[in-house]
Design a protein around this nucleic acid. Structure first.
Lengths: 143, 143
DNA sequence: CTGTATCCACTAAGATACTG
DNA sequence: CAGTATCTTAGTGGATACAG
């Protein structure tokens, strides 16, 4: 009776191009310059605005505010405001935000492991660039 | 006998901020609009320039060229040119490039699983924006 | 302290036309 | 076919000043 046309499981199947489409919005959120750093900082526990600012170093107020607002918007970070004087605002990863740490760590592992190879490839590439560049006739004259 | 001060393993340890720093260059490469799509397309096997262009749809020649060059630079993609007429160029993932698919899939899984939650969070956020926005006095007059 | 507002520099990206 | 050259536009990010 068994159906010889066994359907493959969704996680393994799918045209890879399809799968890629799904990652795009996620990468759009975490792929910018600051988001992962903020998430990383918050992975230790709740922090106040200026704490994050100091922890990251190099981030402008503007970018920190924008990044936090973006993360809050997507439910990755929760914002708790205490209307004291002076005001105090705590930021904390939500469950959703914490769950993101897992694939992020996988990516970090890859990065740590393969960065030397990537850097080596760049050097290699730069060298070839020079060699071919010298005898390469340009389409048009350079400015 | 036993040292009560057991050193944690390097993969678990480390100030999370440190770990984040490592991911930045990687995200800088794959976090843009087109790179993952190109990698995804190539994950099936080698492809020619125009094949990729058609597969992705929406990408401009310029962006495809730049993306491919970037990937080649970092050793994720290899470029093979056949000086025939008309010319033919094959692009293919290197071992390094293929290894990237693994963490990328992890990220995709996360994206697929949690995107509904993210979208819901956005709606929620938008609603609150409206409510608070109405009674919120602005710092300065809007333009 | 926790942001917002504004101006400015830089870059990324699309459209178009053209070459080997 | 497989790109390059160039222009133009949109978005990103930094610096600074200021408000609640």
């Amino acid at each position: 009776m068994s159906d010889t046309n066994i359907p493959v499981r969704a996680t393994e199947v799918a045209d890879p191009r399809e799968g890629c489409r799904e990652v795009i919005p996620t990468l759009a959120r975490i792929g910018d310059k600051w988001t992962v750093m903020v998430v990383g900082s918050l992975s230790n526990g709740p922090m106040r605005y200026n704490q994050i600012a100091r922890a990251i170093e190099g981030i402008s107020q503007r970018m920190l505010t924008l990044t936090l607002k973006g993360l809050e918007q997507d439910g990755l970070v929760s914002r708790t405001m205490y209307p004291t004087i002076p005001p105090r605002v705590d930021y904390e990863l939500t469950d959703l935000g914490r769950s993101l740490i897992v694939p992020l760590r996988a990516l970090r592992s890859w990065a740590v492991e393969h960065r030397p190879a990537m850097l080596a490839a760049r050097e290699e590439f730069a060298k070839r660039e020079q060699q071919t560049g010298l005898r390469q006739t340009r389409f048009t004259d350079p400015k």
